Amino acid sequence: MAEEVKLFGTCGSPFSSRIQVALKLKGISYEYIEEDVTNKSPLLLKYNPIHKKVPVLLHNGKPIVETRVILEYIDETWKANPILPEDPYDRATARFWAKYIDGKCAAAAMKAFWAEEKEREKAVEEACECLKTLEGALKDKKFAGGETLGLVDIVANFIAFWLRSFQEISGVELLTEEKFPDLFKWSEEYVEHPIIKEYLPSRDELMFVFVHKRLQNLK
């Protein structure tokens, strides 16, 4: 019996892009279903009734939600081309950094981009501290796990592409070669990876996401 794999996602979303990259790295064929996040489909609400968000992975009719949970599910289900290290300590370390990026770095960067002017300087300082921490953890490696893409790199897609693009649009400077040479070099290696490039949004899509998020933060 053939496996049925579907992905509910949306253009311009770093979270949807993460799952597309992981499935591609694993060589898994799937059906992509584009969701309008301003008018969520009945299927999305059915499969993710608690958070009502993308991405949602549907595997043989069973929904898996939450980006990092989906990534680990993919890695455990399809063993080829692992995205998590085999060693338990290294796996735990990768999970730690993935959580740090989502819970601390991305949130700090978002705040820096959309903070009111009087709060922006402090928000930028906090975001740069997070990037400094990641710079120290990278230690001249090509990718976070060494020579190949892994969980931490996939989760850090927001920093590699979205952050750099949003800072061009907003004029708020966070990640530069002068400030963070190792992290900047990693980001360039990342976006030039042939699989990554396939799932990066266009500038128009990014502009839509940026404006939409800014309007949400102004409410």
Rank of each mutant, 00 (worst) to 15 (best):
A156Y: 08
G61V: 15
M110T: 07
T10I: 08
A80W: 02
N48K: 07
Q167F: 05
K62L: 07
T38A: 14
L84M: 14
I169H: 11
P14K: 12
K122T: 14
K6H: 00
G171D: 08
S41A: 04
K53D: 00
E192C: 15
K213W: 06
N39F: 04
M110D: 13
A106P: 00
D182W: 00
T148R: 05
W114K: 13
L44V: 09
I33H: 04
P201T: 13
E34Q: 13
W78T: 02
R120K: 15
I50T: 15
L58V: 15
C130E: 10
E86S: 15
E178W: 03
A2G: 07
P63I: 10
V69T: 13
Y199V: 15
L23Y: 10
F158L: 13
H59G: 03
E189Q: 14
F184V: 07
S13R: 04
G146M: 01
F158N: 12
D153L: 10
S13E: 05
D102G: 06
A109E: 12
T10F: 02
F166C: 05
F180Q: 10
I19K: 05
G171R: 15
K79M: 11
E31I: 06
M207P: 00
K142E: 01
S165F: 09
W162A: 15
E168D: 12
S187R: 06
R164L: 04
V54Y: 00
K132T: 09
K46A: 06
L206G: 02
W78C: 09
L138F: 09
K53G: 00
I159N: 02
Y89T: 12
V191W: 09
G136N: 12
N157T: 14
E66V: 10
L218I: 10
E198C: 11
I196Y: 11
P85A: 09
N217K: 14
T38C: 06
S41P: 11
Y30H: 15
T176Y: 03
G12K: 02
F184T: 13
L25T: 04
L174R: 04
S165K: 11
T77N: 07
T77P: 05
T148D: 06
R120W: 00
R164Q: 13
L149R: 07
H59C: 06
G9S: 11
F166P: 02
M207F: 10
D87M: 08
A156L: 03
K213C: 11
D153Y: 14
V5I: 12
C11Q: 08
K179A: 09
K142I: 02
A92Q: 05
K53E: 04
H212Y: 05
T133E: 08
V172L: 09
C128S: 13
M207W: 02
D36V: 11
E119L: 13
G145R: 01
E34C: 10
S29E: 14
E205G: 08
K118I: 05
E205I: 14
L71T: 01
L215N: 11
G145M: 07
F158M: 12
G12A: 03
A22L: 03
I159S: 03
E135K: 05
I101V: 14
F180A: 14
G150M: 05
K62C: 04
T148F: 14
R68W: 01
L174T: 02
V124P: 09
A156V: 01
L151S: 06
V155C: 06
A127D: 07
